[in-house]
Design a protein around this nucleic acid. Sequence first.
DNA 1: CCTGTCTATTTGTATAGTCAAAATGCGGGA
DNA 2: TCCCGCATTTTGACTATACAAATAGACAGG
Lengths: 234, 234
Amino acid sequence: MTSLHQRIFEDIEQKIMSGVWPPGQRIPAEHELEVTYGCSRMTVSKALSALAARGMIVRRRRAGSFVASPQMDRTVMDISDIGTEAKVAGHAYGHRILSRRIERLGTAEAAAIGEAAGAEVARVECLHIVDARPNALEKRLILLDAVPQARDETFEASPPGSWLLDQVPWSEAKHIIRAVSADAATAKLLTIERHAACLLLTRQTWQNGRTVTFVEITHPGDRYQFAGVFHPSK
Amino acid sequence: MTSLHQRIFEDIEQKIMSGVWPPGQRIPAEHELEVTYGCSRMTVSKALSALAARGMIVRRRRAGSFVASPQMDRTVMDISDIGTEAKVAGHAYGHRILSRRIERLGTAEAAAIGEAAGAEVARVECLHIVDARPNALEKRLILLDAVPQARDETFEASPPGSWLLDQVPWSEAKHIIRAVSADAATAKLLTIERHAACLLLTRQTWQNGRTVTFVEITHPGDRYQFAGVFHPSK
DNA sequence: CCTGTCTATTTGTATAGTCAAAATGCGGGA
DNA sequence: TCCCGCATTTTGACTATACAAATAGACAGG
């Protein structure tokens, strides 16, 4: 007994999530949807407004409604540099690909991310540098089944995260934040002391129930933090 | 040039946030608001639906609309025990008040939280215990100006966080998550090794622009994590 | 070609109703 | 007294309509 505006909402959501309507795609005008669903404009409008409120579409007068760009590979909270909080603008950002190769998932790792062993993946390690200091070490798996274009991508032009945004439409994601002690290799790359506390962000992204990418990002704990303001009305 | 339904939304939001309408308070029925604002029911309904969508009110047929209970002192993400993730139910929870005293804010601390030095605060330290193991150390400041009832509260019955939920209506909050190494005192209380990585959650809560409480919660990094699933449609 | 204007399209806001579903709390019956 | 059923209130869903605001794209003028 779902209501009509809810059905329209879910219908369009599904089209966006499955990639049938990619980011930037124009959504039929309210008038057209009113015909396809055989209802009044108010009902269509309610569904579209809800989608807009959730950030899945962007609406512009006269132009129409468009599928928004996904934010699947963005952290839930902002990552900020503890030392230079005020300095918002003027960050010099860069990245360095440490390694990149195509391989097949081992059984242990496959089980950990809930995919079949033997699946082909691109394994990428990338160091993120802000203002000449390393601020994150990224270890990523990209399932070639879901993103075949990743096979021949070097990620030199744009880091894997941003690159994926342009390839995969919409998805769901799970974030986990842990505190860990840096191992020797990580400490060296991030130029911090061994055993220093680090923030470890793990994110797994799915589309249609299948894993797209799995990434671990390690931040130096003494320099970076996750922050977010939440007035209940937002 | 704000629209009418938006004005109604903000008007009611303000009443809730400022505490004029405390949690559980019944909101005038749509029909009554339609009279007070001199508009149609649809317009009122739109505003109330938006408030309901944001979790600020709960609506029930025939009964009416009610101000929801605040979630101001809840973490944005769930805190879960890494070792026993499956075991959702059946946690034995307890807490122990380590210290509690009334004092005045020093200049350094006052500056850090953006309040005037010399303001009276209750300073509470509390250890949270889940399944016989300490899982969090809480260091909290409560501004007596905002919550005078805290002066004579022992927090033995319920920990400061839950206690505050019943005292302060609605508020805004800022969360910060850091990774830190445990100092000697913290390590001993949490029964972990010195310098072990810990998750440090800092939360500051305001009401009407004035700080209500400021809290630092330290979790053992090897046993606890923050996790959240985010399908963009939620 | 470039620039300013005009128009038609599309979303935003609002009204005024109808019918449906839920559930509270009352009154009547055992 | 207690319990059950029903009437009434209140929210939920939807229609049909109206006008306002923005602006993309066509068109005219320099």
